[in-house]
Amino acid sequence: MNNIPTNTQMDRKNSPGCPSIIKLTNISFSYPGSENRVLDCLNLNIRAGDQIGMIAPNGSGKTTLLHTIMGLCKPDKGSIEVLGSPMETQKDFTRIRSEVGLLFQDSDDQLFCPRVLDDVAFGPLNIGFSQQQAIEISLNILEKLGIKELEKSVTHRLSGGQKRLVALASVLSMSPKILLLDEPTTGLDKTVKQKLIHILNHLNITYLVISHEFDFLKAVTNKIYSMDKGRVLTDEYNL
């Protein structure tokens, strides 16, 4: 893993003065029927320009954290602010879903249309683009990610790496302001990993990446956080 490019990391600026994109305050969450708090008074502030890596043991609540940000898990207490507005009801979350893109751990969960182009265009069509516009947006994204040749492929016959890239394209086609990536490198070979690093380094977008691979996080992020006992551990004091 020594040849992973890390040079772009040096150019990245820390962003203490930038506006907050996602702000979680005192979030607690436990799954129904369980006493164990997966998230316990958790605080997290993601600012514009942040490219955060999150590395923590299994079961420490990383995926739950992402799902809470998306409104898929309802916290027991605490407040969530996305792009400056408080998220209180499901309606609030529905409104911001085109602004926050979540890449799921398993690409098969995310790709449900019969063909690749249908899947990538699913988001743009849902947020009101016309058929023609949705096709144009999708083709652009596929080209940007270097997988334009997959446009007409049948989704369930793609390889694991191709599926991951198509899933990323399907999230990016909604032009989100922030990306949440849940273990994007799981099951990928070195070549696809390199491709993913290249793509993320050229995206110019705020993101939070969960991964168990330190080298990968080092190559694509400018901050690395961890989680323990339901809280986010950072090296910053001004959360």
């Binding site: 799902h67 898929l72 529905t94 893109g101 398993d106 969960d109 249908d118 069509l125 999230v171």
Partner: peptide, 23 residues
């Protein structure tokens, strides 16, 4: 899986209406 797929669909702005690209 059904639950996760539905969540993924909601995350991409699914509003109970299905669109198609075929013209």
């Amino acid at each position: 899986r059904a639950k996760r797929v539905y969540q993924a669909m909601c995350c991409r702005g699914f509003k109970q209406k299905f669109h198609t690209l075929d013209i």
